[in-house]
Design a binder for these strands. Structure first.
Lengths: 344, 344
DNA sequence: CTGAAAGCGCTAACAA
DNA sequence: TTGTTAGCGCTTTCAG
């Protein structure tokens, strides 16, 4: 017990002077170097424990050019997918002794670029990123790579870079979702997409279109809308869609929040789900089964995606020579609920 | 443009040698020191920009014993309150030029203690924490303070420490919630509490009890249950409660997830909400109004709480002399929806 | 097996 | 106004 208001920091120097050893011997003893006798190791470790010695991470980072820290950049956080992914990332990172810095790009690619600049100075050993909606060029990401920093993409990936990506089976899931609506009797199916630049946006739209085409259904061009992520704007876009004369009878949305907005609007203007409109969405909503009506979802393995992304990144950090970028796909599952039921 | 696969790091030394200045002059010029001529400042800044110089944060941290980084420790992340709070924290931190490390204690106080040890070695300049459910002693938190590290509590606070706390009006909100149920005609009101140690848990239970007493309602001791945070266990506890002969007609829960479990159980065993059971809960659920039935909530200003906590912490970091700990309360609002409606 | 010494990149007191 | 120097705490090479 120490009776001081602020405890002095205990560092190698202090341990060394108490033990009457040199700093380097203490350092080596703590890292279990073969050069040090067992007896000395024990003495050193005992005292370190007693004084609760914690090495200064910045001194060590500076010296070894390794920070044991990774950055996670997500476009938003009010989205259950990203929250679960962060959970998975955090889990894997902790397991491997890494620290996790969080950054939110707020779907703004300029901000994303700014963030990236903050990361290339050694603060982190690698970057996990899910791109913002409006990102279309990848120069800033190349900058990271050029600094020798590994980067792993998850969900919203870039295909213009040679690096690891972790995604779900976007094309197939979109295809399946659309097919699901068709099988439930929908003829006029609309799609709320994420944006035009992202590869997942493109894949999900392609899957949607192909499912329509394969089933000889016409695509009404007004039924393919691109949402923005801004509540007010998306609300208007979707309301517009649902108020149109030739209203859709099925809706597939690429993001949870679009489906929720659709729910709100349906409630307001008395469109019955699923009788008048069937809805399916990509979503990791915990309350999907408690909504009125319960919501049919394509659910991504968010935790697993985050975990896999972090593990890949750490592998790339620790074994840069042997590391070969991979494109990993972890499948989503369709969970059928009442929003697409046929009875009504 | 550089045609190398890995760009050499540009540091002060490099800038200095190119400009034929000393390292310290370059350093001062970049930090806009009054000692340096404008002409030199311009030259230096121009080159720094061109070469995209980013100072090494660890060298600077090591030297100044400041990392411009704060830690956030939350008990869980699958909870909209904490997600929104993190959003607020992130926002304030970015505004002030701070980085945010995230740690999840998973409601485990041993893990929490472990985390705390990681934080006292200079990695962060301060700690934001919301305690895990089972934390009952605060020795590990004192360790942080003894190192001279400021700590700010939010939501799940400790009252045994002299430090800033940001909470909502827990007692009043619990009182109001209970009163709300009473006014809607409930006679047999149950309560799912968070735990026994946390001060917010105690306050919420007190508010509940006082509201009952003030309205001459008996408290059935079986109706005061303490949930664990573990889904399986909580499910059984709540199911038990709702299956009991003398079933409650009102339920007040301190955490969103308890109310959602209750919803699931009601659906399963055909208890009608609100006819048979009225439910109100603390919650920041985005879908509260879309549930069947829509859920009456006490909604905490989560973003603001996070923001305020971060700003307080940064103030404590930057002006330690003048900083006086405060106990800040930001009020919650009761949003009445169908789960407590009287018509039925 | 242990120790001396250099240096990671930066800051700041002091000198010039 | 600019430069020299010491040193933050740690790791690592090399010498003893």
């Amino acid at each position: 017990m120490y009776n001081v208001s602020i405890m002095a920091t205990v560092n190698l120097k202090k341990l060394a002077s108490i033990l009457e050893l040199s700093i380097s011997t203490v350092s080596k003893a703590l890292r279990d170097s073969y050069e040090i006798s067992n007896q000395t190791k024990e003495r050193v470790k005992k005292l370190a424990q007693e004084l609760n010695y914690q090495p200064n991470p910045y001194a060590s980072s500076l010296r070894r050019s390794k920070s044991k820290t990774i950055a996670v950049v997500v476009p938003e956080i009010a989205n259950n997918f990203f929250v679960s992914a962060i959970n998975g990332i955090q889990n894997a990172a902790h397991l491997k002794g890494y620290h996790v810095l969080i950054y939110i790009s707020h779907e703004n690619s300029n901000y994303e670029k700014e963030l990236v600049n903050i990361l290339i100075n050694g603060r982190v050993d690698g970057v996990l990123i899910s791109l913002s909606r409006d990102t279309d060029d990848v120069e800033h990401l190349k900058t990271i790579q050029n600094k020798g920093l590994p980067i792993v993409f998850f969900d919203r990936v870039s295909e213009d870079l040679d690096s690891t990506t972790i995604t779900t089976d976007d094309y197939e899931s979109a295809y399946k979702s659309t097919l699901h609506l068709i099988e439930k009797g929908c003829k006029k199916i609309a799609n709320c997409a994420i944006g035009n630049n992202l590869s997942i946006a493109k894949k999900r739209v392609e899957g949607f279109k192909d499912a329509l085409a394969d089933n000889k259904l016409q695509l009404n061009s007004n039924f393919l809308i691109t949402c923005t992520g801004d509540y007010e704007i998306d609300y208007k876009l979707i309301k517009n869609l649902l108020l149109s004369k030739d209203r859709p009878d099925g809706l597939f949305t690429s993001i949870e929040s679009f489906a929720l907005i659709a729910y709100e609007i349906c409630k307001e203007i008395n469109i019955r789900i699923p009788q008048d409109l069937k809805i399916i969405t990509f979503s990791n909503l915990r309350t999907a089964n408690l909504l009125a009506p319960s919501l049919t979802t394509i659910t991504q393995p968010a935790f697993e995606i985050g975990e896999a992304a972090a593990l890949q990144l750490i592998k790339a950090i620790e074994k840069p020579k042997n590391y070969v970028p991979e494109n990993i796909i972890i499948k989503s599952g369709l969970i059928e609920r009442d929003s697409t039921s046929v009875a009504g």
